[in-house]
Amino acid sequence: MTALAAGTRHPVTITLNGQPRTGHAHPRTLLSDFLRHELGAHSTRVGCEHGVCGACTVRIDGVAQRACLTLAVQVDGRRVDTVEGLAREGRMTALQDAFHRHHALQCGFCTAGILMSLADWLVRVPKPTEAELRDMLSGHLCRCTGYAAIVRAVMDVTGQTTESVHV
């Protein structure tokens, strides 16, 4: 049985975007804080800390989850992927590029979480309908875009079309 005392910082080792990284965390340290302030992986944004807004969504062993509803000590020994790991050698993925072309982000604060959800979900649902996509996106709050361009970008990158916005 793993037993970690409240008052002690314990070593936590994760595979962050393919690289082994070790930091220290109290049992109560949230994964979102651990990534950002202990490992310096700032791309995971914190928007509500109660699991509704989705900005902090990361992949744990490939599965999209809220980092703010996860303790750092719970991911010891596991794989964590954040948006920093998406682009390879400076080349953005097709999804990132579609977000750029379609203006699917403005302030960008929610974007990392949305991209990480999509990175998991599009593996499971490679050709989503717009309704399915919107259902999945409802786990993220975006205050800038009105979601239209996000939907357009995803439908584009999955080789589908969406309703035109311009008449």
Binding site: M1, T2, A3, L4, A5, A6, G7, H26, P27, R28, L30, D33, E49, H50, L71, V73, Q74
Partner: peptide, 12 residues
């Protein structure tokens, strides 16, 4: 908005 301290047990 951070948790109060607690001991953490992960039984096998």
């Amino acid at each position: 908005m951070k948790p109060a301290p607690f001991d953490y047990l992960r039984p096998a």
